[in-house]
Design a protein around this nucleic acid. Structure first.
Length: 933
RNA sequence: AGGGUUAUAGCUCAAUUGGGAGAGCGCCAGACUUAUAAUCUGGAGGUUGUGGGUUCGAUUCCCACUAACGCCCCCA
């Protein structure tokens, strides 16, 4: 038989089947860069009158990016590219957060020069040492901005990579300082006490991350406080004592209260005629500890009734008031916690709530001051503890002293035990000017994705304490506070701050260190209290959350950019972080939320749903994925995942993503291959003239576009992706493109039928590429180059495909839904006929349909000429009047299909069977195609 | 201790107000060699985390538990 293969119109394209993304993507990036894609992308929508801003939350410029960074920037890129297609002007200015502890610690620990200087830990306080540290920190941060910038770019994220913002730039530091002045001016900032972990040896405050918990032997003592005003009559008019346990006797010096849990029952226990109060459930344990052999519980009271009961401080003329706190537990002690707001976090918070005085008579070296009184003045906390025990003994207030081995915080640097010490700090009052209430109202107006995150935000604002703005660190923007040399007054004056901000703009915040104080004070400035004109610099820096919190106010305060931004999109740790600080600052300064929409993504976990840890060996780095699979594979993973929950990544998931990618790529390739001789400006067939199945597919395309648009608009990219993917696999690859092969390959090149198919493919492919471009940016733009017809140079410069109402044809769609139902039965029948040995190839099948349902019969008869193509069988489908009696009959709802072997012979060219095959082995259709009829 | 989120097939995701558990991928089997390191067809695979409750009926509503995550705390 003659070989007619060369006469077929087989697909032809140089769009490679194998993606080779790791190699090809960098070339495309280069191309985008050379073409100044970002600028052109913006220019195109500059005058549209529609702006959409995703304001980038700055990642910390430390280390290479991890998977969470990649997820974050990729989703932002989805949004930006989608919104641009929808006609929005979408500038995206990436940012970095530079100041802060991790970098400072890294420098202090690893830089040989600095480490040497810090052999004496107190050197940290010396200005010239701080200055050195800051210079190294700047260098370090700079280096990582560069690295991360490259890595983010490699993800295919479109952004203003040349004009990024970073919080240590002089411009940023200066503007931030000005904004700080505004906040001070509006009265939000006050000076207050805050107990913090303090190392008496290094004479410095320590952050959580710098604390090591180690075993330590401490005293363990039980002491008593005599009741003074028994308001609720707990002791029935008798003398009674509250029994308290502690491991830090020196803090008793600052005791002002006793805390009870309102939910517990407390027992009054009588021992040798003396009444003691403690938690009911702990009576037995304490009796054992204290060696009470003969005791009885004489009364039980609710913890909640003990509020306001006044006790006598064990050795000072001071009251110790009963207060209530949930934090009191039954794990240890007596269920009564001694409260010294100057020496404990919970103590401090409880104290604040009850308006208790904060007594903190310990200086920087951990030595008691004048305030502690003659007895304790000049003693270290250790010495004071011994003295307290002595005093308690003298006063018969000590029931027992023992030793206990427990975990206690130690300084990571000098390894000495820490103390908790109240220090003076700058605070931002969350309730000044009704800030909290206004913020809560504003939260209601913001759109939260996923929706339940609104509640989370409401909680985190409703419950947040005042914001401690000051930090005792080196690497940050200094708070331009002055101390009057004459009267000691601490001055935070907007005039001074603004003066300093100007200096920062010229240099940077190092100026606070490098300039003498005279340069930092405006001309003629005098101490508001005493009129003095000699000052000292304070060295506290601003909390880094203030740095990033003001970012929108700095970055979006440029011509052409709107404020507030449209979207903030970050991980769930930002409810107490950036979402919160940004809202507070914006509410304080502008009375408005800095974001209209907040989208929160989940954490990235490993395949088993566990967090990635170096020690677990389950860390997957985005750059490794890119090196092996390419950025589009990583993007596909983001696209298919519901990122608003925690997302998982592992070997299998990557393998599936790769396979999905291949399927998409191949389907695109096949469509491109079949357009190789199609010029849409010349060869298009009008909608009316197109074949029904082609029109049906355009109808489906319209539905798909609308669904995807809706999903993207709700930031549910994974929904859109799955719709597109299913469409490509189910409707294109295995249905439509499969059935078109006969028409595309074997019909005459210029035949209406073939051009009709190409017209449909052209529109489907073109619009799919656009719709997919925010997700699979590299691949869609690569394929875009091969697409025939007029087009923008880059797919991202196109518009979102407009709705084409004429393509919508509900009647046609309904018809095809029925036809596809029949098709399913036909496929089943062919499979059975195969098993029966009746045929081996689909094309050997001949189909008869008995439609009992008259409506179906009508439908089928209207499309009778199309059916063999839709079913991919040979020969005209026949409608019969009775249920056929063939060997293979499949019954459907209201119909039955019969499969038998086709009649005649197989055409040598198109492989369809026909009863009229000529001597060359050709069927009539192929004779026409070859011009032989 | 506490308040929050999540839990559907090996993987990624669906299931309109409570009404017959689905898709794709993967796996197994087959077909084709005219998308060929491709394409097509069929099949297996789930007690919807566990246990209760409301209901004629629950993946869906309520309660408890378990697990994972993160928040808070790490204390006297």
């Amino acid at each position: 038989m003659k070989d007619y293969k060369d006469t077929l119109n087989l697909p032809k394209t140089s769009f490679p089947m194998r993606a080779n993304l790791p190699k090809r993507e960098p070339q495309r990036l280069k191309k985008w860069e050379d073409a100044r894609l970002y600028e052109r992308w913006l220019d195109k929508r500059k005058d549209s009158g529609k702006v959409f801003i995703v304001h980038d939350g700055p990642p910390y410029s430390n280390e290479s990016i991890h998977l969470g960074h990649a997820l974050n920037k990729i989703v932002k890129d989805f949004i930006n590219k989608y919104k641009a297609l929808k006609g929005y002007y979408t500038p995206f200015i990436p940012g970095w957060d530079n100041h802060g502890m991790p970098i400072e610690n890294m420098v202090v620990r690893t830089d040989p020069e600095i480490s040497k200087l810090l052999d004496d830990p107190r050197a940290l306080k010396r200005p010239e040492v701080r200055e050195k540290i800051r210079i190294k920190c700047r260098k370090y941060a700079e280096k990582w901005i560069k690295v991360q910038r490259e890595e983010f770019m490699r993800l295919g994220v479109i952004a203003d990579w040349d004009n990024y913002y970073y919080t240590m730039s002089s411009e940023y530091e200066s503007k931030e300082t000005e904004l700080f002045a505004d906040i001070v001016e509006k009265g939000f900032v006050y000076r207050g006490f805050m107990p913090i972990h303090w190392c008496p040896h290094c004479q410095t405050a320590l952050a959580m991350a710098e604390i090591e918990y180690k075993e330590k032997i401490s005293p363990s003592l039980w002491f008593i406080l005599k009741v003074k005003e028994d308001k609720s009559g707990v002791f029935d008019g008798d003398i009674g004592y509250a029994l308290v346990w502690t491991t830090t006797p020196w803090t008793i010096i600052s005791n002002v209260a006793l805390a009870f849990n309102p939910m517990f029952n407390y027992a009054v226990v009588e021992v040798d005629g003396v009444k003691y109060l403690l938690a009911e459930k702990l009576v037995e344990r304490n009796a054992e500890e204290l060696g009470w052999t003969d005791y009885k519980v004489v009364k039980i009271v609710k913890g909640s009734t003990l509020e306001g009961t006044v006790f006598q401080h064990p050795f000072f003329e001071r009251d110790s008031v009963g207060i209530l706190g949930d934090f009191v537990t039954l794990e240890e002690g007596t269920g009564i916690v001694h409260i010294a707001p100057g020496h404990g976090k919970e103590d401090y918070e409880a104290g604040k709530q009850y308006g208790l005085p904060i007594i903190s008579p310990v200086d920087e070296m951990g030595v008691f001051t004048e305030e502690a009184g003659e007895l304790f003045k000049g003693l270290t906390t250790e010495q004071a503890s011994e003295k307290v025990v002595e005093v308690l003994k003298e006063r018969n207030a000590l029931l027992k002293i023992d030793k206990i081995l427990h975990k206690y915080p130690h300084c990571w640097r000098c390894k000495n035990p820490l103390i908790f010490r109240a220090t003076e700090q700058w605070f931002l009052s969350v309730d000044h000017n009704n800030l909290r209430q206004r913020a809560l109202k504003e939260i209601e107006k913001v759109e939260w994705y996923p929706p339940d995150t609104k509640l989370r935000m409401l909680y985190s604002v409703a419950e947040r304490p005042d914001w401690v703005l000051s930090r005792q660190r080196a690497w940050g923007v200094n708070i331009p506070a002055l101390k009057c040399k004459n009267c000691g007054e601490l001055i935070l004056d907007p005039k001074v701050i603004r003066h300093v901000a100007k200096l920062f703009a010229k240099e940077n915040s190092d100026a606070w260190h490098t300039h003498p104080v005279e340069d930092l004070v405006p001309e003629g400035f005098k101490c508001p209290k005493c009129g003095g004109n000699e000052f000292e610099k304070e060295m506290d820096i601003l909390d880094v959350w203030f740095d990033s919190g003001v970012s929108s106010l700095i970055i979006l305060d440029k011509p052409g950019l709107p404020w507030p931004s449209d979207v903030y999109l970050e991980g769930p740790d930002q409810f107490r972080g950036w979402y919160n600080s940004a809202l507070m600052v914006a509410m304080a300064l502008k009375g408005k939320s800095p974001y209209r929409v907040v989208v929160t993504h989940g954490w990235t976990l490993d395949e088993k749903g566990e967090p990635m840890h170096k020690s677990h060996g389950n860390v997957i780095l985005p750059m490794d994925v890119i090196k092996h699979y390419g950025a589009d594979t990583l993007r596909l993973w983001v696209a298919e995942s519901n990122y608003m929950q925690d997302v998982r990544l592992g070997e299998e998931i990557l393998k599936r993503a790769t396979e999905s990618y291949r399927k998409i790529r191949n389907t695109i390739r096949f469509m491109l291959g079949n357009l190789h001789d199609f010029d849409p400006t010349k060869d298009q067939v009008s909608l009316e003239e197109m074949l029904p199945v082609d029109r049906y597919m355009l109808h489906r395309l319209e539905e798909l576009k609308a669904e995807v648009d809706k999903a993207y608009a709700a930031y549910e990219f994974y929904r859109g992706y799955h719709k597109i993917f299913d469409f490509m696999v189910v409707e294109l690859s295995s249905f439509y493109l499969d059935l078109l092969k006969d028409r595309l390959y074997t019909w005459a090149k210029d035949s209406k039928g073939r051009r009709s198919a190409q017209t449909a493919i052209y529109h489907i492919l073109r619009e799919l590429l656009i719709v997919l471009s925010p997700l699979l940016s590299f691949t869609t733009d690569e394929a875009w180059e091969y697409l025939p017809g007029p087009k923008e140079e880059f797919v991202f410069l196109e518009d979102w495909p407009a709705e084409v109402p004429e393509r919508r044809d509900e009647k046609l769609a309904e018809d095809f839904r029925r036809i596809i139902e029949v098709r399913d039965a036909v496929l089943l029948g062919i499979e059975r006929a195969r098993n029966e040995g009746i045929l081996s190839d689909r094309l050997e099948a001949r189909v008869e349909i008995f439609a009992a349902d008259p409506e179906l019969r009508d439908t089928l008869s209207r499309y009778l000429d199309q059916l063999y193509e839709v079913f991919i069988v040979s020969q005209q489908v026949e409608l019969v009047d009775m249920r056929p009696q063939h060997k293979v009959v499949i019954d459907g709802e209201g119909f039955a299909v019969a499969i038998e072997h086709a009649r005649g012979e197989k055409c040598a060219r198109c492989w369809l069977w026909h009863e009229d095959i000529d001597q060359d082995g050709l069927c009539p259709k192929c004779r026409v195609a070859l011009g032989k009829a």
